[in-house]
Design a protein around this nucleic acid. Structure first.
Lengths: 157, 157, 157, 157
DNA sequence: TTTT
DNA sequence: TTTT
């Protein structure tokens, strides 16, 4: 429980949320949201650079995302960075960086696609402002142990 | 220059922005945005509590707010807390708390009121991650082109 | 449950935390932390402007603050803005703005005062990333009704 | 310029900052900071999981990091997530995720190593609250001393 | 892969 | 004063 690891994102979903039901009965929902920045490169040309953020939501937030979010929607997500190490089928070590969300705010549909409906707006929270699960959290936070193949951590030097 | 004083808000404007042109030639725009929380009180009754945040934007952000924001719109505002002390006409000391914004993101119109238009979405920044506004910031950022590869890691999908 | 109302502060305590035990058995701890910004005013003079933030912590975070924080310590606080309206003894309506904390990180003692001890560093979280109490929060969130009579606003010295 | 991509970190440096001077004359400093979370796994065992964040700072912030940060120090960093794609010597596509910092706060030395010195505390900002590079960014960093004429401002509306 |  |  040391330090602060907080991410705040506001962007659009690149695809519908993917739902995964766990043997344990839990639920995980994942999707990507895009943020972008524009700048002029050294040749003076306009460049738009898009960053894709892989979001992972558990339990309550997973349910909400499953029900209310779809491709093209804009969402506010608060969470923490989580790197998962794994080995691909070629035996190559790889890292996946995800945002484990602990708060979600829907900020409106895709415009086209929600045919005139006003955008919605509701915040839902998992636990943990700083993204740190209290040791025995009354608000349940999926134990990382369930996070299949995730875990581990080590020094980058 | 000590410490961090950062506010992140996402909510709707309670009124159109008010524009004030300064003798100095500068421009200030102010408006309020609402955020709310719902809970059950001790009698088990549902309560919605709204918090109104007085936003103040200067210069570039003031122009954008003036042009693109109106009552009912949802906006993301990042800024810092600022308490101003003043004396009212009865001679009573008072405090006003404002959010001096340094980043603004439009996240869609009011639904009704933007007659079918898709919601917009653009972030504009003043300076200062930590919320410390130099009056006329050059606003620098190295072009990503210079960012020469390093590191390692990757995704499994 | 609409919108985002999030505050992130890193600064030093202006005084020891004040502990208040509630008839209900709950506990509230309040203290102020300072952040400051430096700039040159229009006459080119260096100015340091200090902002004092009134922090209010409940239950678990209150216990931690009571035990580990003291005047001069630096702390990271995450929370939400909360304006309380009250009437002073002259019958004048007043507002008090507080930061209701939902995460706390100790980032070191005062230097002098912790005579050589290395600074500590631990994050504790109440609930609610976005600061929104889930409708029936397992981590109890004090009903605003209980908050009565807290008010006043001013500096801790 | 769409969306919000913001990261807030508070943790300790795993190594001294690495300085890289660019042919262009620019400077980049990189280092990793650790955050951790503690939880009990499904067997009830205490687990501490550390996340390492690769920080990249440019220009003004690079100078400050180079001068004032070293292994073991605690720092607050605000920035944005940036994934860089590259191909390793085996021809394998890889991603590197970095935090491009735009604000930096020193929050004290390592305890041991700054033998009794009080910890320092200063925030430096690059641009961009939301971390979005303005269209044609030069490269400088307003040194706090240069933070020329800020405000005025007030009027209690 | 979103969106403007 | 917004909105759902």
């Amino acid at each position: 429980m040391a330090g602060v690891n907080k991410v705040i994102l506001l962007g659009r979903l690149g695809s519908d949320p993917e739902v995964r039901n766990l043997p344990s009965g839990g639920k995980v929902v994942t999707f990507s949201i895009a943020t972008s920045e524009n700048y002029n490169n050294k040749n003076g040309e306009k460049v738009e650079q898009t960053e894709w953020h892989r979001i992972e939501l558990w339990e309550g937030l997973a349910n909400i995302a499953e029900q209310y979010l779809k491709k093209g929607d804009m969402a506010y997500v608060e969470g923490r960075i989580r790197t998962e190490k794994w080995t691909d089928k070629e035996g190559i070590e790889r890292n996946t960086v995800k945002i484990r969300g602990n708060a979600l705010q829907l900020v409106g549909g895709r415009g086209a696609g929600n045919d005139g409906a006003t955008e919605s707006s509701s915040t839902y929270s998992g636990n943990s402002g700083g993204g740190y699960a209290p040791k025995s959290a009354p608000i349940p936070m999926p134990p990382p142990a369930e996070m299949a193949g995730s875990g581990s951590d080590d020094l980058p030097f």
